[in-house]
Design a protein around this nucleic acid. Structure first.
Length: 311
DNA sequence: CGAGTTTGACCTGCGC
DNA sequence: GCGCAGGTCAAACTCG
């Protein structure tokens, strides 16, 4: 893609800027386009003050629009980029690197981890995954990574995702002082899904669960994900998914089909669509981990895309 | 007593 | 070929 990814990434990652915070703290109706009504209500104020306020509100509104547009563009770019990469991968399966790259990919992954952003490990997961398992059956295996916030004092490597798991091993790895636990789905061998759980090097309160494969049986029961106890940001379905879970309302952002859904809504009600976009943006920007979680997979895609172009 | 967990041994792949 | 590291196995152990 010809666009300067670093620019829009930087811009889009600045969503926590004041205008949106102000927007968050301000009742929705006060940020409507028609500020004349508001001006009439504050007739007791001096004209200058009113003018200043109206200017400020207009300015905030304009910035909100810009940010909304940026978010929309970002979603569209991500979607386009993603489809581009998937198309490329499907067209060039023989380009899958030999298995010798497995450890290299993992070591680069660790480097990105050391950069201080939790989500960075996810950023390379899709790349890593594509390199790591060159054999046909494993390429098909869907690999996702889920970040779950737990109490740092909680030593159990348990990520409650509703499925039942059977632990079959635990190992201390070189790059992480905390041990890694290996789980198989309790429906194994009929269900081939495996999961690895390890605490984040950066933040011991974060559990990193890596899922390999897809369950071929129904969900035993949605316990955690829909209880409202977890907040997740799901960025993309195949081949990578990233979630950040902790206490709070559930936020699911499916960037895999943002256009079709939003277009459908927008065609029905552009105002509603605009409102939803703004609400989503403001909600997400309240979460400091959102930037990391969002930046990681996108930057990973960009890196991957750049690499594929160099090939 | 059966199911699940723990943990040391073993296997496999990669880098040197 | 050797050593290292990640992943898996399976016997011993724990718990309800």
């Amino acid at each position: 893609m010809a666009m300067d990814s670093s620019n829009w990434m930087a811009a889009s990652l600045d969503l926590n800027a004041n205008p949106l915070r102000l927007f968050d703290d301000t009742p929705k109706k006060e940020v409507q386009d028609d500020f004349t009504g508001l001006g009439l209500k504050v007739v007791s104020l001096k004209e200058e003050e009113t003018g200043v306020l109206v200017d400020k509100l207009n300015q905030v509104n304009a910035e909100n629009r810009k940010l909304t547009e940026m978010l929309t563009v970002m979603c569209e770019n991500y979607n386009a980029l993603r489809s581009h990469v998937m198309e490329y991968i499907s067209k060039n399966p023989e380009r899958e690197s030999p298995s010798s790259r497995k450890r290299k990919a993992e070591s680069t992954n660790n480097n990105s981890n050391n950069n201080g952003v939790v989500g960075n490990s996810e950023s390379s997961s899709s790349d890593e995954d594509s390199f790591k398992k060159p054999r046909e059956e494993t390429i098909k295996a869907k690999i996702s990574r889920v970040y779950t916030r737990t109490d740092a004092s909680d030593t159990s490597l348990v990520v409650k995702d509703g499925y039942q798991w059977r632990k079959y091993g635990q190992k201390v790895t070189r790059d992480n002082p905390s041990s890694r636990a290996y789980f198989k789905c309790s429906f194994a061998p009929s269900c081939p899904v495996k999961k690895k759980v390890q605490r984040s090097v950066e933040d011991q309160s974060i559990l990193v669960a890596t899922y390999e494969g897809e369950h071929n049986h129904p969900h035993p029961g949605r316990i955690e994900s829909t209880s409202g106890a977890n907040r997740s940001v799901n960025l993309g379905s195949v081949p990578c998914a990233s979630s950040l879970s902790s206490s709070g309302p559930a936020i699911t952002l499916d960037l895999t089909k943002p256009k079709s859904n939003s277009d459908a809504k927008a065609s029905k009600s552009p105002e509603l669509h605009h409102f939803l976009v703004e609400q989503t943006a403001s909600s997400l920007t309240k979460d400091p981990s959102f930037k990391a979680a969002l930046a990681a997979p996108i930057s990973g895609r960009i890196l991957h895309h750049n690499q594929t172009e160099k090939w």
